[in-house]
Computed example of a mutant assay.
Amino acid sequence: MTSPTPRHIPDRLTSPLSRALKSWEALLCVTALAIFIANALASPYFLDPWNLSDASFNFTEKALIAFAMAMLIIAGEIDLSVASIIALASTIMGLAMSMGAPVPVLVLLGIGTGLAAGAFNGLLVTRFNLPSIVVTIGTMSLFRGISYIILGDGAYTGYPAGLAWFGQGYVWWVFSVELVLFALMAAVFYILLHRTNFGRAVFAIGNNATAARFSGIRVDRVRFTLFLLTGGMSGLAAVCLTSRLGSTRPSIATGWELEVVTMVVLGGVSILGGSGSIPGVVIAALVMGLVTFGLGLLNVPGIVMSIILGVLLIAVIALPRLWARARRA
């Protein structure tokens, strides 16, 4: 007598604990723990609380953009102009500073410039039905080109002392303003994506935009809002980065778009859209921060870090598919 064939139990029928343990986020947590232990063994300075606090500056600004970028990619779009938006926002802040603008105006101008750039991207994509990857490659050159026109080979320095609080200040002990802002934005975007109708609309659009439109979702409005959010978070990152560096150059944040996309995809967001989570992006940001800081403590050259980042991007695009195949098996 032959034994019955085992039946496959769908994930939705298994326990929440079982699903959590088999999730991509669980694998990321194990990876983060392994990297933390490896860094602690590799350098005697790693476990110093102030050094760990400094490590947070390697990912907080990029993670602010990654939260919005995650939602945009889940909806089936992408924005490759985020680093150039930072350059443009920082340049506008420096221009206003040279004219005597106070700190609150500089902050508003930085965020406002990001919102305007995001609205411009969103308008081109939704109104003219252009592919977002093509549009944002174009605006990537446009926004940074404007910064070079304004500044050339020069730089804006001498920002007011009050601005330094955003990028260099501490709320309590080793908890920097940027780290607290990172945690706050993580909570906000978690609620927005996973606990609101807007977030459900984002997933629906990413899975099937045509079906979402016929179900009554205002697809173009949601997409425009996502580009607006991504631009606004890029403007906020520009405020933090400019504050931390204390200067503005047109080359600021060069290459950040690659790191932000890597952070999002490493967090389990499908590059094809339709799936992903904010907790995954949070853990991915910590992993990338630990990797970067650990390599820095070991005096690894920047070009080697770039190579590692490129390999990581390729790996994280391939690994989710291999992970899904392994789970089905």
Rank of each mutant, 00 (worst) to 15 (best):
E257F: 05
K22C: 04
T113L: 11
A211I: 05
G206L: 10
G118R: 08
I146R: 12
G169P: 00
I271K: 08
P250V: 02
G310A: 04
M69C: 08
A34K: 01
I9M: 14
E178I: 02
G206P: 05
P4T: 04
F175T: 00
T136F: 04
S215K: 03
I86C: 06
A63M: 04
V107M: 12
L124D: 02
F36N: 00
G145Q: 15
A238R: 13
P301H: 15
S43P: 00
L21H: 03
M185A: 15
V82F: 03
L228F: 13
S234M: 05
L108Q: 03
D79A: 01
L95S: 14
A209T: 12
K22G: 07
F166N: 02
P131Q: 09
I308M: 14
L123N: 01
Y156F: 15
W165Q: 08
V105N: 08
A161H: 07
D220Q: 15
M305T: 11
L88E: 05
A117Y: 01
T242Q: 12
S81K: 07
F214R: 12
M1R: 09
T136N: 03
M233F: 14
V222R: 10
V281Q: 13
V103Y: 14
F227H: 09
G122Q: 05
T157W: 07
Y148C: 10
R321W: 00
F143R: 14
F293L: 05
R327D: 05
N197M: 08
S277A: 14
R19P: 01
A318Q: 13
G274K: 11
T5G: 02
P102G: 06
L245A: 13
M305V: 12
A20Q: 12
L130P: 00
V180R: 03
T248C: 12
C240T: 07
W173Y: 03
G310S: 03
R19W: 05
H8Q: 11
L17T: 13
T136A: 02
A204N: 09
L33T: 02
P6F: 13
L192P: 02
D11M: 10
I271R: 11
L272D: 04
I307A: 13
V134Y: 02
A96T: 07
I74E: 01
R223Y: 01
N208Y: 10
R223K: 15
P160F: 10
A161E: 13
G235R: 09
A183G: 06
V260W: 11
A32N: 01
S270Q: 01
G310C: 04
L193Y: 09
L124W: 07
P131F: 08
L312T: 15
S176D: 00
F128I: 03
S243I: 08
S84E: 06
M305F: 08
G167S: 05
G112M: 11
G289R: 12
I314P: 01
V304T: 14
S132H: 02
W50E: 05
S18M: 10
I191W: 14
H194M: 12
G114P: 04
G169V: 00
P320I: 09
G118E: 05
L322A: 14
G235M: 08
A187C: 11
A40C: 06
V260A: 10
G310E: 03
S275D: 07
G158Y: 08
